[in-house]
Design a protein around this nucleic acid. Structure first.
Lengths: 270, 270
DNA sequence: AGTTGTTGTGATTAATCGGGTTACAGCGCT
DNA sequence: AGCGCTGTAACCCGATTAATCACAACAACT
């Protein structure tokens, strides 16, 4: 196991969680020794000794380290479980506060809305997955889903699909036979198929290859299409809703041409 | 309802969660209008229009807003539930990454340890509560707990106490009759008492009044004492373990003098 | 006691970042 | 052409943070 790499990873994550570089380095350093003085910590972490004290103070205020008030002072980190528990608690309570503050605000509008042609863009796999799940949950009749990458078939998504009402047609496709198998195992009642969308996979107008992420069509009136940047693995999506929406209209045309799978239309109206 | 106050609260919390001021203001602004352009957003939030674009980009990358790529661009926030769900997911995955990175590191030691006289200091109510719960969970024979402030009797703590093994004596005290009542309701099997620790409450050597927070003694060999800064409501604690620990010895002397409640010693050895 | 290396605080400098402003090029409209 | 609006990019400056330095207090050892 590459300890150095993990140390760097931990320091990075702690900074993403709001700590400063010195604070992060000191905390990680402390987790590697059961107890230590400022001097020793400074040697391990390359944080200037005189700055260790400041860093420790804020770590202590965050509940991540304990201080022995002797001379010289000794520091130690709380146990890993205790630390993550504390952090989780802090972020949870912040998100709760945010939720409470915002739910009692929501108005100022007086704005025209609903140009039927709206097409929205989003990015970030977690956000796109959230939206995917939400749309699946709102379905009344039909869900058509094409998955382009194995990593997108998360358990949360599988649950959302399996929770869908019995009434709803589930058509789930993928680019490869093996992924279709996998889907059949996870969501047995869905009709699976190998997508007819290879054209989405090719080189994109001369630039680098862009991979298809997902394609979701709900009740033939909401659609979400995402692609994955091959370089960064970042997922980006566009999303439209409403029967008259431009994107949605295009999707229906694709279906009419057989490029998307079609449920037998004679069984229902509309 | 004071909308302005809640808007400020939301902006503060978002910044604690890592967003910059402009980003926070833009997001909160967007939650107040179903959809809007940069100009309008700038008017609502007082963020310079030319900077709205930057802020929106990072919000989009965080999965908090969607962008309509038209001219002019239109922005909208994802639903509040979606936003909090996304945020929670992001922080959870970060804490997980941290946990994984650190659990495969833990060593460099070669350090002497365990001077029996160790006394450690910690601060932050959540961290102190975590440690309290942990200590209660590690008890084998006896838990003596004195609560100085109503707000410290959280449900997590109550659960920890109720989960304690039947074998374990639970002695729980408080400074006021009413709080003892409350404790008796929450943790029926505990023996309650009104503390004999009023002296901890008085003026602290001429400075302002410092309030006692909690006092926890587990198996007569681990002790935790906390106080609450009257100004900031910050909780600070000292903590010692080991039968020979200085703090613990003092605690035993207090008990011998009747300043802490004593379980009938004839019923067990030691 | 005197010497020496360690320890904690505070101030100081240098670099980076974030908030705030301005300049400007492209567009649609009259 | 003239105008206002849109989006990009560059810039300034104050605040924060990384990094150094000076120093007084202290512990340990001779």
């Amino acid at each position: 196991m590459d300890t150095t790499r993990n140390v760097e990873e931990a320091i990075e994550v702690l900074q993403e969680l709001g700590l400063k570089e010195y604070e992060a380095r000191c905390f990680v350093g402390l987790t590697r020794i059961s107890t230590g003085t400022a001097k020793r910590l400074s040697e391990i972490t390359d944080v200037p000794r005189t700055r260790v004290y400041d860093a420790i103070r804020v770590l202590e205020a965050h509940g991540l380290v304990e201080v022995q008030h002797s001379s010289p002072q000794r520091f130690r980190a709380v146990s890993l479980d205790e630390a993550t528990k504390t952090l989780r608690g802090q972020y949870d309570s912040r998100v709760d506060r945010l939720h409470r503050a915002l739910e009692t605000v929501d108005a100022i509008d007086s704005e025209e809305r609903s140009i039927v042609q709206e097409v929205w863009g989003m990015s970030g796999s977690d956000a796109i997955e959230n939206r995917t799940i939400q749309l699946v949950g709102e379905a009344n009749e039909e869900v058509v889903l094409v998955i382009g990458d194995e990593s997108l078939l998360t358990s949360a998504l599988v649950n959302a699909l399996n929770d869908a009402d019995e009434e709803i047609d589930l058509l789930i496709g993928a680019l490869t036979e093996s992924l279709v198998e996998c889907i059949h195992d996870e969501v047995p009642r869905a009709r699976g198929f190998v997508s007819g969308l290879e054209w989405l996979h090719g080189p994109d107008a001369g630039t680098e290859e862009t991979a298809i992420g997902r394609l979701l069509l709900v009740d033939r009136s909401s659609i979400l299409v995402s692609s994955i940047m091959p370089k960064t693995r970042e997922e980006q999506a566009i999303f439209g809703e409403g029967f008259g929406n431009g994107l949605v209209v295009i999707a229906r045309r694709l279906m009419a041409q057989g490029l998307l799978p079609v449920r037998d239309p004679s069984t229902r109206g509309q």
